[in-house]
Computed example of a mutant assay.
Amino acid sequence: MIRPASPADTGEVVPLIIQAMGKLAKKLTNVEDDEIINQIFKHFFQQKDNQYSYENTLLFEDEGKILGSLNAYDGGKLLKLRQPFLAYLTEHYQANHTDQGTETQSGEFYLDTISVNPLAQGKGIGKQLIKAGIDWAKQLGHHHVGLLVEENNDRALKLYQNMGFVIQNEKQFMGGLYHHMVFKLK
């Protein structure tokens, strides 16, 4: 079952968000210690009005266990949603994010992190979360759904293409090269 997240889901969801981000979690936070990264994301998941808030997260739950998560939001609001996160990192970890760049843009509902527990992969959970994200975008009145996928992640690229996403352009983000993919809503 897919449902909106709540602050009570923090312990199960934050590892999924960090898993989806991979090396970007360390780059974004400017922190090497995995436990501190976990604490940072837990803090923000429980708060409102930020990029990684429970408010921007849908979950796939089965028999009381969270097996997947999708974090998404209006791309035009990225800078506003990211600001509390960056201010916190600057204050507590002396991080300087002046050249971070943006992964999304106005005019699209952005699927930021899509993650499935490794023990539950291959069962269609990711597809269900993506479809739920597309439906969420429709409900909010968006016409485009966007996401980034690393250029060398052929498995994810194929999944998104099979679901109707098309490569719009290539994007440099935090030192990596990504396909910016878009799904047009009818």
Rank of each mutant, 00 (worst) to 15 (best):
S115D: 02
K27A: 11
Y88S: 06
D49E: 15
L111I: 13
K77N: 14
M163Q: 14
Y93V: 08
L89E: 10
K123D: 02
D9P: 08
K48I: 02
A5W: 09
E150Q: 11
N30R: 13
Y52I: 09
F41L: 07
G133T: 07
F44V: 06
K131Q: 14
G126F: 05
H97V: 01
E55P: 04
V14S: 03
V31F: 04
V182F: 02
A156Q: 03
M21E: 14
W136P: 08
Q39P: 00
D62R: 15
I17K: 01
L24Q: 12
D135C: 01
N117I: 00
F165E: 02
G133P: 11
Q46D: 00
G101F: 03
A5N: 09
G68T: 07
L79I: 09
Q139Y: 00
M174D: 01
E35Q: 15
S6Q: 12
A120Y: 11
G22R: 08
S106I: 00
H179R: 09
K184M: 09
N71P: 00
Y52S: 04
K26E: 13
Y88E: 08
K123C: 07
Q128Y: 01
G22A: 12
F173R: 08
N96Y: 07
H97N: 15
G122V: 07
L129R: 03
L67D: 04
K26N: 13
T10G: 03
V149L: 07
Q121G: 00
